[in-house]
Nucleic acid binder design. Structure first.
Lengths: 158, 158
DNA sequence: ATCAATGCAAATAATTTGCAAAAAG
DNA sequence: CTTTTTGCAAATTATTTGCATTGAT
């Protein structure tokens, strides 16, 4: 959870704040450091808990107010898996076109990239008169464990 | 909105109800007829309004209770476009693997299918140790109008 | 008759927001 | 100093649920 902070991403976010004349507060730093020290997808609630471990003064409101800044900067992507809360993915800075496979039972998520799919996408998009901006491909299926045992031991591996 | 009811889909849903020993009520009929007389994506709230036009006694609660039956039957698919409400797509009975392109400005949605992409998906999924159950590919981009004029005249074409 | 299905209104839960106090620039 | 940002608690809003009643089988 609390590995090394990715300074590239952190730096980029600071630049983003400066460009918009937004202030660098202790709470924003705690939140941003938290985000860029994991590769995991997280929820707002998880981000709150982890950020509080760094700085007790971080509030839920500030987390919810910082999340839009992170997505607007392009360094984090909001993802909807159809649950009643959203997930955030901090890996788009490094892999802008990656996709997700989610296990139906344990909800384990694996990321992958495919040049061939990307190419087909832009081809089809063009043919339909659009120009492509973003794409998201989500596959759900059964992981090895689910296939073998009929159920996964640990659920909710998000 | 109120074109001809697709009797194939309607019929399949009735079979689905029978198999589960669920009852055919006037309200369910109004809702189901509404769903299968459009190709448009809709929200729960829209479905309520349209169903009420057929049968004033349909309540919001019944709409929300019927929607899971429709998705469970496989005839309708729940879709999350990251808004704070969900959309439902009644076209999965005819096109089980179709995908969506959404215009960034007017939110016009175009559906498309691609065998090549499907094939790549199942190949990749297999390679990662999963077996594929569902896939959803969402592309966002600029439609012709947005590209040409810089903005779309009518917004929110959902 | 029996038991599922309904409408209503209250409950839930993620996210948003108003406001007075605190802190950044 | 000025203006943004904060935490708190209350508000918002889509969806869900308990319950007494209605209606399908």
């Amino acid at each position: 959870m609390s590995g090394a902070v990715k300074n590239g991403a952190r730096e980029k976010f600071m630049t983003f704040l400066a460009r918009k004349h937004l202030r660098v507060t202790a709470q924003r730093q705690a939140i941003v450091d938290t985000v860029f020290s994991t590769n995991q997808h997280f929820t707002a609630e998880q981000l709150l808990a982890w950020s509080r471990a760094r700085d007790r003064s971080v509030s839920r409101a500030t987390v919810y107010r910082t999340l839009p800044l992170l997505t607007e900067s392009g360094l984090v992507r909001e993802m909807d898996f159809g649950k009643d809360y959203k997930f955030y993915d901090p890996n788009y800075a490094e892999h802008p076109n990656h996709n997700h496979i989610i296990c139906n039972d344990c909800e384990k998520i694996v990321e992958f990239e495919s040049d061939k799919i990307e190419q087909l996408e832009s081809e089809i998009t063009r043919r339909l008169g659009f120009s492509l901006q973003t794409q998201r491909l989500q596959i759900t299926g059964s992981c090895e464990e689910l296939k073998k045992l009929g159920a996964c031991k640990k659920k909710r591996g998000i």
